[in-house]
Amino acid sequence: MMMLMGLSETQWVHTAMIALIIALFSFLVRSWTFRNDRFQWIPVLGVTAIAISMVALIISLFLRSLAAEYFALSNMYESMLVLIIGVQLGFLLLDRWFKLPHLGWPVALLLIVALTFDVSLPTEIKPLQAALQSYWRSIHVPIIILSYAMFTLAFLSSIISLFKLYFAPGNASSTVQQPIPAVEGPNTERVSMIQLSQGLSSGLPASLSGQAAGELSEASLYDELTYRCVAFGFPLLAIGIILGGLWANEAWGNYWSWDPKESMSLVTLLGYGVYLHLRVNGEHSPKILAWVSVAGYALMLITYFGVNLMGLGLHSYGKIG
């Protein structure tokens, strides 16, 4: 059995799970105390736990790949590991950029559920089928899974946005303080952007400071975040499908076969295409956009799990069980 630092592949997965549980509790506390400066260390703990969990899963996948003698991304268990890593990576980047107070605990909770489900799947390492012995597997599959990770973050962001819009409409326009560097005002007095927006001797308008930048409306923040995740995931999915087409043409003699998996991935792409066009059109409310994002994620789940559960078509090696 392959080991690293005295831990086996499975033990690294367990380590990741423990780290995720720590992250969940940290982010829950953060969510309640994000306006309190005394608890600034809590999100750091949560983010560190997510990072540790991600590293643990990467090590687990690495050990598995060594044992299998191929890049371990050939069945549902392995692809879900990569999906979880992708969500963690995406979350860490988003959190670094935008310091999101309420996204942490839903991400951690979802990942705990996903990892629990994943370890219940068959984990046996099997020899690769002939069709899977291609360099395309290491290119096509991770890109698709990474797009799914972005859609997962978009989905969670949409849910938070919807929650704010429906159940806390009063709070939807409440603000989330972003980490704003102190700046030197024209009169060399050190002031924060928030103060600048309150009419001190600066030219910063409300759109740049105050609610729009220094403090963002929570619903707007998560709406914008959803858009960024979809805008990043959509091209990844498109490129992933294209690469799949190139591989299919090499392996099966068809770049498109209307196979259930590829057809559903096209449906997912079209669904998110609707989201992006609604966004470009600019005539739809954040509620509609968030619902379309949720619908897109439902399509993605059908593509990822539904078709595999049926074990239909040319992608049947991804079937569950």
């Binding site: 950029w97 972003q178 560097p181 740049l208 729009a212 930048a213 914008e224 975040l225 960024r228 805008a231």
Partner: peptide
């Protein structure tokens, strides 16, 4: 697009 990133850049 990418208003958030842009606003942070303006900040």
């Amino acid at each position: 697009k990418a208003k958030l990133s842009f606003l942070k850049e303006l900040q």
